[in-house]
Every structure is written in structure tokens, then in C-alpha cells.
Amino acid sequence: MTAKPHSALIIVGHGSTVNADSSAPTFDHAAEIARRGVFGEVYCAFWKEEPSLRQVLHMVEANDIYVVPNFISEGYFTRTVIPRELELSGPVTQRDGRTIKYCEPVGNHPRMTELLLRRAAEVAPGVPPEKTSLFIVGHGTDLNENSAVAAKREVQNIAARGVYAEVLNAYMEEDPLIAKWDEHAAQPNVVIVPFFISDGLHSYEDIPVLLGIATESGGAASATDKEIFRHNPYQLRGRSLYYASSIGTEPLFADVILEQVAAFDAVHAATVSA
């Protein structure tokens, strides 16, 4: 991507008032992009943390502003909450001498497939993929989100590459249930990648409990629960199980954020002069 020294980038995350790690990947990706010096200014903004979506534009000095949602899929937040809170009128908003360019969420980018494959290979080094069942785990039941649709799309994309013996969707709260992983998986090795933007109670505890590799802490899960990712493989139900951290913690997300900016420019080049 060409450098944009006169533009600002705002990476929008959901954030949390209870999970200290929710905003971490968004801050990490912003710090990495700032380090590369691609943009004149780089900021984060959050729905549930600070700076909020209502505050962040006061931090920005550039008149050319890109907004990239650090969300796994399009849905309620990318279509309703973020545009409303930032007072956006569409992909391009002109206001007070500023141009705000609203990009696609990171999870929509075609490179997600590559990132999932990379994470799966990293978590199970030396394990032959032709003898491995790979699960992409989503939440399920998200009423207004399309994360399940995005997860299914990624499973199809990965399966089409023919690297893994089988590639499967599973969910926490709807069929196919991740709790029944051993019934769904036919291979001796099983790799599990949570399709979430950050680590938190779901990846630290809920999914591990459903997999059978942890017990419920009664809400005591904390940053120390990263331990769950450090004991692979788990020998369980006659298989070798490898459990990865949420895909959104992958450092290459910083590249995908920049590629969503480039993709925006490619689509809107005719209507916006930078």
C-alpha cells in the first residue's frame, strides 16, 4: 500500500467493560501500523471502551480519514452502530471539510483464509494436515451478526485448497456443536481455531470447557488463562487435540487492515480524490 502521510486511520473495535483483553488486538494492530509509518496518524476507537466512537474524531487532525472495523464479519455493529456513532452517511462521508472513508471489516477480506491456515499450521507444527481435522469455531446464535456466514465461507475456502483431510464448522451454541468435536472429526489429529476477533471468556474458558480440556472457573477467567494455549497437544477421546488462540490475535491482521484500506481505494477511486 502506498504511504498516506496526510491521512489518518481509525481502527474500530468492540471493546468490553469486563474483559481486559478484548481491546488488546486492536491496540496491537494499531501500534504495528503506526510503527510502519504508513499513515500520518493511527488511532483506535471502541464501542465499549475509550476512546469512544464519539470521542475519537477529536483526536484526528488529518482531513482524510479511513475507518476500518476490526470485526470478524458485517452485521449490526458495522452496519448500524459504527455509522450511527460516527455519523457516517455511506462509504464516503464529507463533513466539516473532512472526508471519512468507511472500509469493509477485516473479516471480509479474502486473506482471512490464508491467516486461518497459518494459525492452524503454527499451532500444530509437524502434524500432517492430511491426517488432521480442522475446526473453525464460531459463536452461533449471534442474532444480528453474520459471523456464522463468514465462518462457513472460510471453511469452504480452506477445504477447496485440499490441504486438510477435513475442514469443519462448529459453534458454541448451535449445531454442529463444538462439544461433540470427537463425533464430527474422523482424523487422529484435531486442530481448533476460534473465529473471534480477540481472546476472552469464550476462547479462554467456554470453548475449552466444551472441548473437555478445562473446567469451569465460575467467572474467574483472567489473563493467566492464556495457559490454555500452551499445553498442546491435549490427548483426549483417543485424539491429539491442538487448540489455538482467537484468529484476531494474529499479527498479520495489521496487513489485512491496510489491505482493506487499499481495497476501499480501488473500489472508490473514481468517486473520491485522496
Binding site: 475519537v56 477529536h58 483526536m59
Partner: peptide, 12 residues
């Protein structure tokens, strides 16, 4: 900006 997010910008 980490200690008091956006507070400098809001002040200005």
C-alpha cells in the same frame, strides 16, 4: 492518549 484517551483532542 493511553492514560486519558481523546482528552487532549476534546480539550483543544
Amino acid at each position: 492518549d493511553y492514560f486519558y484517551p481523546a482528552m487532549l483532542g476534546v480539550w483543544l
